[in-house]
Design a protein around this nucleic acid. Structure first.
Lengths: 152, 152
DNA sequence: CAAAAGTCTACTTGTGTTATAGACTTTATA
DNA sequence: TATAAAGTCTATAACACAAGTAGACTTTTG
């Protein structure tokens, strides 16, 4: 049940873009290099990932001197599920329980397939979290943890 | 978040072994071929999978004429989590939230890492299901569904 | 026009998944 | 006790995919 590096880096980048955006409400712009250095990600690889997120409409960008990336919408309106699906595809562990990319899995009878029953539960549990957690939710949680640990 | 074919086939096979075992309490023995034909799995591939499950102590086998595989314990004492981990490894989407195979993931501060917070929730949600669902639970659910659909 | 930034496509490289092959061991039973 | 039916074990092939690298191109600012 692994998250790919692509997905990991993309989520980290989006969190980075969301983090300081909560203070001022102006969307914060960051450059690829800035993110890649901070998160220790190959610049070239991150480039592709950000491009995919851009083409999916989750971030916008500005070209040229002083350019960079910024969230396309307020952090509270972007969920982990949206980001994940762009970078790693469907959430479901097996195609026959996927909402976004259903395909029959070849069992004799789907309705009574034991594996399908359980994997359906798993899919729902995962998407329950991913689709209900926004970038804003996470920056809030981060702030709460920091406070609890004594500001920092 | 994909379940591998290896994991899929292994889980299907275990469910097959558990299914009729509920009637009589004698553990049902099935041959590789029997399972592979019923579930449409390459016999040779399934062989390896069953062997792994055997070495992990989840099934026992009998060699020679009239041999086959059977569950090592009652179906209620074998969980999806146990089977999954043998065949597909840790449940956690990212190493730094794994209970069974922890490794640092390289973020500057684990305690306040936003990705880790969310993926920790995901891990818990998955293992909550997988570790609390036994093979017996599933055969029961299957029976309930069948009844609801008009016996069959 | 030069430099700084993002865009786009292709390629490489390594690793893992999904098998397939074949020789070997154990057991029942004719 | 030979034979056939079963599981055991290890190697390797074929392929796909992930992860990363490269480089040429476009846009924007000063």
């Amino acid at each position: 049940m692994r998250l790919s590096k692509r997905g990991e880096y993309g989520l980290r980048a989006m969190i980075a873009l969301a983090e300081p955006a909560e203070k001022g409400s102006a969307p914060k712009m960051m450059q690829i290099k800035e993110i890649s250095e901070r998160e220790n990600i190959s610049t070239k690889f991150l480039e592709q990932i950000l491009l995919a997120l851009k083409n999916a409409g989750l971030v916008h960008s500005k070209m040229g001197v002083g350019g960079g990336y910024y969230l396309a919408r307020p952090a509270k309106d972007i969920t982990f599920g949206q980001i994940f699906r762009v970078l790693d595809g469907p959430v479901a562990p097996i195609k026959c329980v996927s909402q976004m990319a259903y395909e029959p899995c070849g069992c004799p009878d789907e309705a009574t397939c034991g594996l399908r029953l359980v994997m359906g539960d798993v899919r729902n549990a995962i998407s329950d979290i991913l689709d209900k957690t926004s970038l804003a939710d996470v920056t809030k949680r981060q702030a709460a943890v920091r406070k609890k640990l004594g500001i920092k």
